[in-house]
Amino acid sequence: MDIKEIMQPENLVYKKPELLNDTAMHYCPGCSHGVVHKLISEVIAEMGMENKTVGVSPVGCAVFAYKYIDIDWEEAAHGRAPALASAVKRLWPDRLVFTYQGDGDLACIGTAETIHALNRGENITIVFVNNAIYGMTGGQMAPTTLMGMKTATCPYGRDAKLHGYPLKVADIAASLEGTCYVTRQSVHTVGAINKAKRALRKAFEYSMQGKGSSLVEMVSTCNSGWKLSPEKANKWMEENMFPFYNLGDIKDTGANNQ
């Protein structure tokens, strides 16, 4: 069969989502952020919410998320995204409102905003990209850095006496009355990506159905910060991150809470 015969519009089975524009993303090669951006773009389009979505971007690697996904965006101060999103959703209840935050933004400087937005049961979704490191500033220790893990500010490895312990944000979120859906996903394989997409879709739908707050944690790699190739970073994540940050739904009360 001729290649041209196959390359017909009716045979198209995958292409970059339309909401993801052609601007080259600033992320490092192999960075998980790109996949998460694709999933968000796909889910918004599949829900038909392109014209009714407001995203809130963080400070950190995803600070420029607004350059890549063609929806309306607000760029928040470091850690404050859930406060912005709370106001947007309350003032525009029929909009799909989500924040996109990394571990430094969400789990460190923005802990108060995160916990309280979730605890108020704001009808928003927090997309939490956890790669256990500060990527944008050059690989410093994050609140989610694993024990023993080496970063620029814990070059001899995270030591509980010096640095305390890694924070399991999703587990905290699941304990709050205001959350309806808390899940931990990953985007390193086709199977994981498909699951992560379904989780994102569920969270966005719960937000629109007014069921409460959702937190979708994406356990991710930072191959530059970890100083590994993208391929090895995925393997390292499977071996080191997943045993501590277990994948799967932690809480889902959306289905029975009408």
Partner: peptide
């Protein structure tokens, strides 16, 4: 009109930012 007691002044002003931006 929406009235919301925030968790801090930091959050209040960022809610204002979120709302004003719309």
């Amino acid at each position: 009109m929406v009235v919301l007691q925030a968790e801090s002044e930091t959050s209040s002003i960022n809610m204002v930012y979120g709302g004003a931006a719309t």
